[in-house]
Amino acid sequence: MPEPASTFGAGIDSIYYIILWITGAIFVLVETALIVFIIRYRHREGRVAAYSHGNKKAEIVWTVIPFILVLFIVYASNDIWLEVKRADQGGAAPADALPLRVVAKQFEWNVTYPGPDGELDTADDFVKRNQLHVPIGRAVRIDLGSEDVIHSFFLPDFRVKQDAVPGMTIPVWFEATRTGEFPLACAELCGLGHYRMRASLTVHEAADFDLWQSQEIAASGSPTGASEIDTERANEAEISEGEESA
C-alpha cells in the first residue's frame, strides 16, 4: 500500500495491520496443523484410525475464540469507519472545509471549484477537467455525482473510495497531509474507456493553492457561470466507439 497522505489514512491502515496479524496467526496455526496432521497420520502398515465422533469441549473452544476475535475486529473497525464517514456529524464535512463538486461522466472527472468566495454555485466558480487541486492541512468536502453510469472515485494514497451514482449526490471528505501529485482513478467498471478514466490530484501548500486558483481564473478570462458543466467530450477522439449500436 502506498504511504497514506490523508489524516485518516494511518487509522485505516492500523486496522489493516491488526487484521493482518490476527488472520496471519490463524493462517500459520491452521495450515501448520493441517500439514503436521497430514504427515503425522499418513497411512502406514498397521496404522489404525481413532474412532471418535468429536469432542464437545474442543468445539466450544473453537467456536468461542473466533467469535471473540471477530467481535474485537468489528469494534475496532467501526470506530475508524464512523470517524471516516463522520457519522456523528450526520456525514457532514468539517465546517471550514473547502467545498468542491466532482461530477463523473464517461470517461472524465469534472471538478467545480468555488473560486475566491469559497462558495459553490456562485459566479466565480470555475471548472477543471481531470485536475483536482487541494490545499494541504485543510479539509476538503466533495459533493460527488455522476452524469451517466456508476463510477468510483478512488484516491489510493488517501484511502478514499466512493462510488459516484447518477441521481445521487454523495458527500466525500478528506484532509491532505502531504503535498505532491497523486493519482485519481475510476474503480468501478464504467464502459470501454474505464481503464483510462484517470485524473490527478495535486496537493499544494495553502499559499500555493491560492496562487494556483488566481492563475486559473486569470487564464480562463472572466469567471462567468462556469458551474454548468462542459458537456463536450474532449477525449471523444480517443474513444473507439465503432461497436456502439444505435
Partner: peptide, 11 residues
C-alpha cells in the same frame, strides 16, 4: 475478514 472490515474495504 479484510474486506468485511468497512474501513479496510475502502481501500
Amino acid at each position: 475478514v479484510f474486506m468485511a472490515s468497512t474501513p479496510v474495504d475502502i481501500y
